[in-house]
Design a protein around this nucleic acid. Structure first.
Length: 487
RNA sequence: GCGGAAGUAGCUCACCUGGUAGAGCGACAGCUUCCCAAGCUGUAGGUAGCGGGUUCGAGUCCCGUCUUCCGCUCCA
């Protein structure tokens, strides 16, 4: 793992040095677990998103996309379970460094008291806890723990930190006038999915969508992380590409398996070998799921989750229906072969595929990054090359006059004019040709064409391939076609 | 959160036991060059993370602080 970690660090350095990814607000010492995409990183990321969108939306007649706002009505997060499940006061034991939810800790003590026959004591304890929790009285909660001599089960001591609130969600104030009032508080979405659920009927009706159908979305989400490390793998502000697939109740198992297989096919289609992937089935399921798994990729830091496939049941739509008092149901006219009657009215079940954009970027980078030793007997030589699939490369084509005189730049410029409207090109006339090739390797440009004196005679150039470093002579008017075919 | 290490030019690093900062690469300008980095000339770039202390004098010693990396913990 030690060398793998070096590889991981090398990739991070390379990303910064070659304009892919910078730490956020670096001139102010950075902002924890937030990163900015630079000139080439943003191109790479955009290409990945475009590819996903194309394969999920464009290639499926029954899937459409939306772009919901990041701000949502606060009740959304009550309905989704995010408020209740992820904003509990926590406390750490200083000796064992074990972290507990305060309510769990106290409830366990109450259970214990009850078992010992101290029914009354137990009830008093729980009642006090409820009062303090309702009042957000953290000092009081700590005192309660200490007074009742509640020990950590690992260290068996009562040496506790202060009670702190763990907030999964970022909150902000809605409205220009600042106020202490709670009702002005709204959250930055911690997942994009809810924007799809609250628009379920809008899309279904206006798009005349028939079950089974999907709604896709690419967008930012925000979560406070307990530990924030590992580069862009775990960020506070991140981007998701997800699709919620609405289905008949009872068919969830079959669709879950379908999307598991489909999504893995997509991953293998990136040119990444199968042994770099594995499924990881969730044993402990989130509050909304009846089956869930991750697709994990073998990063330099080990196998880690890139994508999640969840069978979310009707949890979300059912809760939104309850909280909003609006019917979120689908009328299914199709005939059920089992009964000979229409399926009728129901809240659809949902299978979700959710892939992290930033994690995919990191996966593509990890897969592409290669340090090569090109030494011969005469001379030591090496290069760093990013072997991106051509469709993801930030720059598709570099156009290089061999020397910057004798009319060569002029010819190169006409090639530039011809190609720049079709894909990202880069023109460069500085330095020796070898140096320019290597610079392009470092940012993963798949093709370089070089204009030389022969170009003036017969309108040909040499095209040089990034991965093999081989060159061949091609007519100038074929360049565009060759690159377009590859991307 | 705890423990360890490190923070000097864009990058990698040097300055040994305190005396007012240097190299290579890179960048830029030019020369040379007819196909794979490290040929020649020139230029720019650092108040040594930040704050304080000791000292005649600190990058170099001491304290604090911030950031990063490694390990443990945590991971909804």
């Amino acid at each position: 793992m030690a060398t793998d970690n070096n590889r991981f660090q090398a990739i991070i350095s390379h990303c910064k040095e070659y304009g892919f990814i910078f730490p956020s607000s670096e001139i102010y010492d950075g902002l924890g677990a937030v990163y900015d995409y630079g000139q080439w990183g943003s191109e790479l990321k955009k290409n990945i998103k475009d590819h996903w969108w194309k394969s999920m939306v464009q290639m499926h007649e029954n899937i459409v996309g939306i772009d919901a706002a990041i701000f949502m009505h606060p009740t959304t997060w009550k309905a989704s379970g995010h408020v209740d499940n992820f904003s509990d006061p926590m406390i750490d034991n200083k000796d064992s460094n074990k972290r507990y939810r305060v309510d769990h800790l106290i409830e366990a003590k109450a259970d214990e008291l009850e078992k010992e026959g101290q029914q009354e004591q137990s009830e008093i304890l729980l009642k006090e806890m409820d009062t303090l929790l309702a009042a957000n009285d953290f000092d009081g909660l700590k005192t309660l723990i200490e007074n009742n001599k509640i020990n950590c089960s690992v260290s068996n001591t009562c040496n506790w930190t202060d009670v702190r609130q763990f907030n999964l969600m970022f909150s902000t104030e809605f409205g220009a006038v600042s106020s202490e009032e709670e009702e002005n508080k709204i959250y930055l979405r911690p997942e994009t999915a809810q924007g799809i659920f609250v628009n379920f009927l809008n899309v279904q009706k206006t798009g005349r969508m028939k079950i089974p159908f999907g709604i896709a979305q690419i967008g930012k989400a925000f979560r406070n992380e307990i530990v924030a490390r590992q580069f862009i793998f775990r960020m506070r502000e991140f981007e998701q590409m997800e699709m919620q697939f609405f289905i008949r109740p009872g068919t969830q198992k079959q669709w879950y398996e379908h999307w598991k297989a489909e999504r893995m096919k997509w991953h293998l289609g990136l040119g990444i070998p199968a042994e770099k992937y594995r499924f990881h089935d969730h044993v402990k399921l989130a509050h909304y799921a009846d089956a869930a798994c991750d697709i994990e990729y073998d990063f330099p830091i080990g196998f880690k989750e890139v994508e999640g496939i969840h069978s979310r049941t009707d949890f979300d739509l059912k809760n939104h229906q309850e909280y909003s008092k609006k019917k979120l149901q689908y009328f299914d006219n199709d005939i059920d072969p089992a009964t000979g009657k229409p399926f009728g009215n129901y809240i659809p079940y949902v299978v979700e595929t959710s892939i992290g954009v930033d994690r995919t970027v990191m996966m593509i980078l990890s897969e592409a990054y290669e340090e090569q030793d090109l030494s011969t007997d005469e001379k030591k030589d090496s290069r760093v090359v990013l072997k991106f699939p051509a469709r993801f490369a930030p720059i598709k084509l570099a156009i290089l006059p061999l020397v910057k005189k004798d009319g060569l730049p002029e010819i190169a410029r006409t090639i530039m004019e011809d190609c720049m409207g079709h894909f990202r090109c880069f023109y460069e006339e500085k330095d020796t040709i070898g140096k320019r090739y290597r610079r392009m390797d470092a940012i993963g440009t798949p093709f370089c064409v070089t204009v030389d004196h022969q170009s003036k005679e017969d309108n040909t150039v040499t095209i040089r391939y990034r991965d093999t470093m081989l060159q061949e002579r091609i007519p100038i008017d074929k360049i565009r076609e060759i690159v377009l075919k590859a991307i």
